[in-house]
């Protein structure tokens, strides 16, 4: 009898590890990185590399100081660094980007106990901290292909606030003003499809998020070009595909994810239409991150084989 081993479930172990998932996310981000280098020049690549290095370094140093298990090999710090860099304008001074990395890794992630314990998405929170701290730097976007022209950097506005009619082709290609990784819609969609096909992310959240924005803009403006422009401009695709699908900070059930996505879409629209800020994607994701535990609580699935209790609770 002593040879009988008792161990808790799960008994079947999947070959999928955190490292493999993160590697897939990095691969999915590569098209957007390539597009950003084409649009904004080599400084976009430099910014991404600096953010990744700083994130990994902060994670390593913090875990060394606090004598925690070293987790830099799970690649999550690199994903955070890439996502943060994609959320920054290309002209931002590098030291500000490093401050953002500190906020993301040390304050948002490690202070709460490391990967899996953070209540908010590190990259989103770091972006909001930078936005509130260095507002003028964070809202001056370089004109696409500025690096080909000699002389000083010309700044332009994001398509969200420009007066002229939206040009869908340039929104798709990303040749508009914006943060490093958010402008090129095609590259982000390719990355998203790759993640959905490899089953890394569930399509529920991004589809509900983007769908809510599309449908409500279509109803309020009655113009299909306007509605398409609303989902292609700003950080909506980047946020919906890569940030609102974070495993740690979003609901775990499909109904929960649908509520999460619709909520994100509604808050984004509210901020875009009535707020003083041009873009609301990051705030909407952060607010819904905070609501995630509540959503999870209301969408607990019935356990397999469970019998409905008479009278319910109490």
């Amino acid at each position: 009898m002593s040879k009988l081993k008792i161990e808790p479930s799960p008994h079947i172990k999947s070959a999928v590890s955190t490292q493999k998932i993160m590697l897939c996310v990095i691969l999915a981000l590569v098209p957007a990185l390539a597009a950003s280098i084409w649009i904004f020049g080599i400084r976009a690549l430099l910014m991404t590399v600096i953010c990744c290095t700083a994130c990994v370094l902060f994670e390593w140093v913090f875990e060394k100081i606090t004598k925690r298990k070293n987790t830099i090999s799970d690649l999550s710090a690199i994903v955070t660094g890439m996502l943060l860099a994609f959320n920054l304008p290309v002209t931002l001074p590098f030291y500000m980007a490093v401050i953002g990395c500190f906020v993301a890794i040390v304050i948002v992630k490690q202070f709460f106990g490391g990967l899996g314990q953070n209540f908010a998405n590190p990259a989103i929170t770091a972006r909001i901290v930078l936005m509130l701290s260095f507002t003028s730097y964070m809202t001056s976007w370089a004109e696409p292909f500025y690096y080909q022209k000699s002389g000083e950097i010309i700044t332009t506005s994001t398509p969200l606030v420009s007066e002229s009619a939206p040009d869908l082709l340039s929104l798709l290609l990303g040749t508009t003003g914006g943060c490093i990784g958010e402008t090129c819609a095609i590259a982000l969609i390719i990355g998203g499809i790759f993640l959905i096909v490899t089953k890394i992310i569930s399509p529920a959240t991004p589809l509900c998020f983007i769908g809510t924005v599309f449908v409500i803009t279509l109803i309020t403006t009655g113009d299909i070009t306007e509605a398409t422009a609303a989902i292609l401009s700003g950080g909506l695709l980047l946020g919906a595909i890569f940030m609102a699908t974070d495993y740690v900070t979003t609901p775990i059930t499909t109904p929960g994810r649908i509520i999460f996505g619709v909520g994100c879409g509604l808050i984004t629209l509210l901020i875009r239409s009535f707020g003083t800020m041009p873009e609301g994607v990051s705030y909407s994701i952060l607010l819904m991150n905070i609501l995630s535990p509540l959503i999870d609580r209301f969408t607990v699935p019935k356990a397999f084989g469970a019998v409905k209790q008479n009278g319910g609770k109490k």
């Binding site: 001074p93 030291y95 500000m96 401050i99 304050i107 901290v129 509130l132 701290s133 260095f134 507002t135 730097y137």
Partner: peptide, 16 residues
């Protein structure tokens, strides 16, 4: 040349 971080004057910075 160093920008100060406005967030520390805002309520969020106070709590932090």
């Amino acid at each position: 040349f160093l920008e100060s971080m406005t967030i520390f004057i805002l309520p969020a910075g106070g709590f932090f």
